[in-house]
Every structure is written in C-alpha cells, then in structure tokens.
Design a protein around this nucleic acid. Sequence first.
DNA 1: TGCCAGGCCCTCTTTAGGGCCTT
Length: 204
Amino acid sequence: MERIAVIDFETTGISPGADCRATEIAAVLVENGRVVDRYQSLMNAGVRVPAFIEQLTGISTAMLKSAPSAATVMAEVADFVGAAPLVAHNAAFDQKFWDAELARIGRERQQPFACSLLLARRLLPDAPNHKLGTLTRWAGLPATGQAHRALADAEMAANLLGHLHERLASHYGLRQVSHPLLCQLQKVPAAKVDAFLARAAGRA
DNA sequence: TGCCAGGCCCTCTTTAGGGCCTT
C-alpha cells in the first residue's frame, strides 16, 4: 500500500474566513496499515477562540498566542505530507481549511482527498452513527487520547482507515486497496457498493 | 441591507425538506 497522510484540523468555526481559522493541525503518515510518522502543532492565526470551541477542543486564545504562526506551521505540515494522498474524516471540512490555509502562504494542494466518513457509510452501514468517536468505540479501535485534539483525531481516523481496509479484505477479498480506488468507492451509491467491489476484486 | 457552510443521503422525493458530519 502506498504512503497515505491522514490529517485533522481544529479550527475556530465551521467555514474558513477572516474570523474563522485553523488553530491546530495534525498529520499521520500511514504505510501498510501502520503509522510511521506524526506531525502536530498548534498555530497562531491571530484570531480569538470562541468560548464554545475552547470548551469543545480545550484550545484557548492564550495557548495560541505562544504557538508558531499559521504560515510557519502550514509550510511545515505541507512539507511533512509531501505528495502523499490525503484522507480525513468528513474530508470536505478539512479540505476547505487545508486549501484556504495553504492559499494564504501561496501554495496549492496537488493530491486528492479521500473521506473516511463517506467510506464508513458505505462499508459500515450498521454502525449506530458515523461520527469518528462512535466508529472508534463501535469497532473496538484503540483510544488515541483527548478527542477533538488534532493528533488524537488524526490517529483515530488512521485507525478507522485500517479497519476499513480490513473490512475490504475480509468481505470483498481486496487486499491491495489504492487511494484512487477509495476515491472512487466513496462516490458509489450505497446500493451499488457490493457490485462495485466485486468488480474491483475481479480486476485485482 | 441582510444574510452567514455545504455536500451527502434518505424519503412521507425529483416542482423538496431535513438530518448527518466536521469545528
């Protein structure tokens, strides 16, 4: 399996803008189902953290004041990730912030995102819901630390991705699952997932 | 001025509405 980067942002809100910025980023590099390297940093974008976000994440305005600048951190994490294809839980959210924060330093994403939320909806339809924490507990995956902190959530998503790979192997006989195949699978209508994966296994 | 996310996915659908998921 190729090297994949699983990322997670903590932010001050739901959609990037002048008042809504990233506060923390983590990236974990996964090879052959194992985490081989990690990056995590708070980042100071010069914004205040709303009270309810501080309550959710434990990240305060005071903590950000002593953190490196968002520009420094984004340059570091983009170099850390390199050309590895990306995965995030509800990737539409992290992709918006990844692209917006990179644009602020004049850089542009080159690689595609896959979404562990869309994949879990297709491969784990019996889960009570598809929140990252629920899936982690439901699948019996290890605790990774304080939820709603970037590294703990990125490692949870990496573990979930490993669980999805095991599911593809055990139920569909797919032992080599590429990132492009994941990107295709996350768009397949739920009713056609079995047929799609049967065809993929036939080609493999 | 007033607004303030948005794509996915199901259904009591398709001339639409609302819950899910991320912070």
